[in-house]
């Protein structure tokens, strides 16, 4: 960063997505309520469930990702974000340590599928359509697949925590949360 130059008025480009998560973090994002009006003064949204844009522009500034990595598609999306975003943020418990989806890691995925797709008297038929992304042997947090720059814990992080985190980041400060805002649940 060039310290002598005044901050550009350019709005930052933000992309968001949910991988193996419940969209709760995105819902919590909306809990910043009317502050979203302040936020859109500072940022434009690129790929995101909010905009319904399907792919990242090549010059995104921030990528905010909810959820862990449970299948092949998650890996591809995460790679797309890492490739196109300068800063990648893991948002929420699932993105940070696998969260609830990772609780399947204590079981073998083959046993899980055999139990789920067993049909009484007709054996086990596990879907194998190429359209369906394959599950990974285990669910992983994001930072085990790509380099993650910042972590925003919580299940979900509160609207206030998200607001504090983003305003720190947009102002060029290393985000800190402090008591009351840092939560793992």
């Amino acid at each position: 960063m060039n310290a002598s130059a005044p901050p550009p008025k350019r709005k930052l480009l933000v992309a968001t997505t949910s991988l193996a998560g419940c969209f709760g973090c995105h819902m919590s994002f909306l809990d910043i309520d009317e502050r979203i009006l302040d936020l859109v003064e500072l940022v434009d949204f690129d790929r995101s469930p909010i905009t319904d844009i399907k792919h990242c522009s090549p010059n995104c500034d921030l990528g905010i990702i909810e959820g862990g990595v449970c299948n092949a598609e998650n890996v591809h999306v995460l790679h797309e974000f890492r490739k196109n975003c300068k800063i990648l943020i893991a948002m929420g418990a699932c993105a940070i340590n696998g969260g609830l989806p990772a609780q399947r890691n204590s079981l073998d995925i083959r046993d899980i599928l055999a139990a789920v797709y067993a049909q009484p008297g007709r054996g086990v038929h596990i879907p194998n359509d190429p359209e369906i992304p394959l599950l990974l042997n285990e669910v992983h947090p994001l930072h085990e697949v790509v380099k993650i720059d910042y972590f925003l814990p919580g299940c979900p992080p509160s609207g206030d925590a998200i607001w504090k985190f983003l305003t720190d980041l947009l102002a060029g400060r290393t985000p800190t949360l402090g008591h009351g805002l840092i939560h793992y649940d």
């Binding site: 893991a90 418990a93 609780q103």
Partner: peptide, 27 residues
């Protein structure tokens, strides 16, 4: 395997409380 959201001890767990105090944002 520390999944705080599903843990009965969350909110009064010493490991969690200490991690908050130290500003541990990720494992």
């Amino acid at each position: 395997n520390h999944y705080c959201p599903s843990c009965e001890k969350s909110g009064k767990c010493m490991l969690q409380g200490l991690a908050y105090d130290l500003g541990v944002m990720d494992p």
